[in-house]
């Protein structure tokens, strides 16, 4: 009895050097199953610069360019232009961490979105600069510990709302996904493949080393993020049509937070605030999804 059915085609080799239990490695594996071999990956500085393998090795069975930080969307736009000149087809995909998408490559991404470049921009969001030693990013959630936001002074700012920012860019497709829902993730990649213009896929990518949880719990944490309502699964088309893909079980937010060392210092009050914030965001989302049905 299968629980999830995913394509058998394997477009990623073992031997990549992600940390044990890394969700971004699994995300790539699942994404490539949906995207297939006709895919060109662009990877700016991020964990995946390392994960793919040391020179002269690469773990993915498709072309992958390692490029400078902050340039991913611009580089991918160039690849698309080159393909068009050569009249060739391929999925042009940016594969980057939250450092690129939320902070350093934000400008090129915004530009590419404004030009509606025909690329799939994937951010595997591990909520911080993990491979340089767990520094805060604008994707780090409020109250979280990182090495630059120590326990005594945890992060004070809310996580940047990437989905809303790009809804405002009116891109044809934006979706959230995470590894505990592999079929949902694959469906979204398959859908993105068929749409012309800029597609944003925002993947929540639990990171055992940076979030401080045992590496066997990656999927559990990912599932809890969704089932507590902290990370809802939804899609936005043209910045207008919102579709919620999964109704959370509304497990207590503590279930998610308490499993991670980066939230170990949180108090009852923090949990309460988190809960209220999650509920508020959910109502907003719900309201938007009701606004334009079909």
């Amino acid at each position: 009895m299968k629980i999830f059915t995913i394509p058998e085609e394997e477009n990623m080799n073992p031997g990549h050097v992600a940390c044990p239990g890394c969700a971004s490695a699994l995300s790539m594996r699942l994404a490539l199953k949906a995207l297939g071999r006709e895919t060109i990956l662009t990877v700016p500085a991020c964990c995946w610069s390392v994960i793919d393998g040391p020179f002269p090795y690469s773990s993915v069975k498709v072309p992958l360019s390692h490029i400078a930080f902050g340039t991913a969307a611009a580089f991918a736009s160039g690849i698309r232009a080159a393909l068009e000149i050569k009249r060739k087809k391929a999925n042009v995909v940016v594969w980057c961490g939250d450092g690129e998408a939320f902070d350093i490559g934000f400008q090129t991404l915004s530009g590419a979105a404004e030009r509606n470049e025909d690329i799939i921009f994937v951010c595997y969001d591990n909520e911080g600069y993990m491979n340089t030693g767990v520094q805060r990013s604008s994707a780090t959630p409020i109250k979280a510990w990182t090495t630059t936001t120590p326990k005594k002074y945890p992060k004070q700012e809310l996580k940047k709302d990437l989905m809303e920012i790009f809804a405002a860019h009116k891109i044809p497709y934006a979706a959230t996904a995470t590894v505990a829902f592999p079929e949902d993730m694959i469906k979204k990649f398959s859908k993105a493949k068929e749409i012309r213009g800029l597609k944003l896929i925002h993947i929540l990518s639990p990171c055992p080393s940076g979030w401080k949880f045992p590496e066997n719990l990656t999927i559990k944490i990912s599932r809890l993020a969704v089932e507590t309502g902290i990370f809802p699964l939804y899609e936005i088309e043209y910045g207008e049509k919102y579709t919620i893909n999964h109704t959370p079980k509304w497990l207590p937010v503590e279930d998610y937070l308490k499993k991670q060392g980066r939230f170990a210092h949180l108090t009852k009050k923090d949990y309460q605030e988190k809960k209220e914030y999650v509920e508020k965001k959910w109502l907003e989302l719900k309201e938007k999804s009701n606004r334009l049905k079909n």
Binding site: N13, P14, G15, H16, V17, P54, F55, Y57, S59
Partner: peptide
Amino acid sequence: TPLSLKDTISIRTGDWK
């Protein structure tokens, strides 16, 4: 540009465990 043409199968990441 340096090009990686080999797959990672020869990297025995299993030895980490």
